[in-house]
Each structure stands twice: as C-alpha cells, then as structure tokens.
C-alpha cells in the first residue's frame, strides 16, 4: 500500500544529495578561543565549608550515630526478653517491656539517646490526647493526670538518682521502665479516647 505513494524519482535524488554531503564538519576556527576566554573570565567560586562538614566532625558524628543506634538497637533487642525473660509479645509495641541488657546503655549519657525517643513519643501522644480528651469524662481525665503525675515523679526521682550514679544499670532499667509505663498509658488512653 505505501509503496504506491513513494515517488521513486524524488527518493533517488535525495539519496544522491545525502551521499554528496561531507562526513564531518569542522567548527569555526575561533570557537575554542572564545570558549576558553569565557571560562577564564568567570570569577572562581569560593568553596567554603562549614565546620560541621570538616572530616573530623563528620567522623565524630558517625561515631556518635553508631553508638546511639547501637544503644537503641540493644534496648530494642532486649525488649524482646533476653536470658529467658518474659516474651511480652502479641500486641502493640506498648506491650513490650524494656529490660536493659548488659549490652544496653551503660550510663546516663548513653541512656539520653533512648530517653530522647521516649520524650518524643510522650510529646506526640500528649498532643494527640489533648486534642481528643473531650471524649473522656472529666473524672477520667483527672485520674489520668494523677497517674501521669505519679509516673513523672518516679521518673524525676530515678533520673536524679542516676545523675548522681550515672553508671548504675539498675537505675537505668528502672528509669526506662517508668518511661515505658508513661508511653503505654498515654497510648492506651489515646486509643480509648478515639473510641
């Protein structure tokens, strides 16, 4: 069908013209000179780096990141129950109990990495609960606040003790347990408030 539409004469002429074209074309003689002049006239960009981009700080940040994530991982693993500890599984993460293992945070400084996660969770849940507490009775809200106050007092007391004795693993475990209780209570209440 298409063969019928092709003008063989015109096609032959086109092929002749193509064959006659040069295989390469040289650029104009002064092109490279103009390009070089253009590059050299551009002011050199200053490559200033912040102190936080210096290798020593990047290395320190990497070490801190590794140490922090290791601590978090150790806690997370130990939550599953090590050394035959109870496997508190089968529900929301709030059901998981924290048990600081030998490889977990060994000092207050290391625990602060984990603590920041707890605090973030508490802030998020508190904000959600504030928004939804209208669905709870005033009595329940009052009792919830009282329970939170009790946990906060325990956290404060354990934290002060840990500050005075920063390598006490028993205290670290107790502090972690109190945080875990607080997160769990807020989470459960939020879920109930949602109906």
């Amino acid at each position: 069908m298409t063969d019928d539409t092709i003008d063989e004469g015109k096609l032959r002429d086109l092929m002749k013209e193509v064959a006659a074209l040069p295989r390469t074309i040289e650029p104009p003689a002064d092109s490279w000179a103009k390009i070089r002049a253009g590059i050299e006239s551009t002011p050199a960009r200053t490559m200033r780096t912040g102190f936080w981009q210096r290798p020593v700080f990047l290395a320190a940040a990497a070490v801190a990141l590794v140490a922090g994530s290791s601590a978090v991982t150790a806690i997370a693993i130990s939550r599953g129950g090590h050394n035959g500890a109870p496997a508190i599984v089968g529900a929301a993460p709030s059901h998981i109990t924290l048990s600081v293992s030998d490889s977990g945070p060994a000092s207050l400084a290391q625990f602060t990495v984990v603590e920041s996660d707890y605090l973030r969770a508490v802030n998020d849940l508190s904000a959600t609960l504030d928004a939804e507490q209208g669905s709870l009775s005033p009595e329940t809200v009052a009792k919830l606040r009282e329970s939170i106050k009790v946990i906060d007092a325990a956290i404060l007391e354990a934290r002060n003790a840990l500050a005075a004795d920063p390598a006490n693993r028993t205290l670290i475990q107790m502090l972690a347990n109190s945080y875990e209780q607080k997160v769990d209570l807020l989470k459960r209440t939020t879920e109930m408030a949602r109906g």
Partner: peptide, 26 residues
C-alpha cells in the same frame, strides 16, 4: 512480668522449674 509504679504487689504462688519471673516497682 509484674510491675507497678507506686502500687503494692502481692504474689503468692508456685513457680515452674526453669521459669522466668520479673517484678518491678518504683
């Protein structure tokens, strides 16, 4: 795993050989 913050804990029971029981309170 039995835990409280300020609540009293009373446990009167027998324990299996090989059991793992944890009690925590503030």
């Amino acid at each position: 795993k039995i835990e409280s913050v300020t609540g009293a804990i009373r446990f009167t029971a027998d324990i299996e050989k090989g059991a793992a029981i944890d009690f925590d309170t503030h």
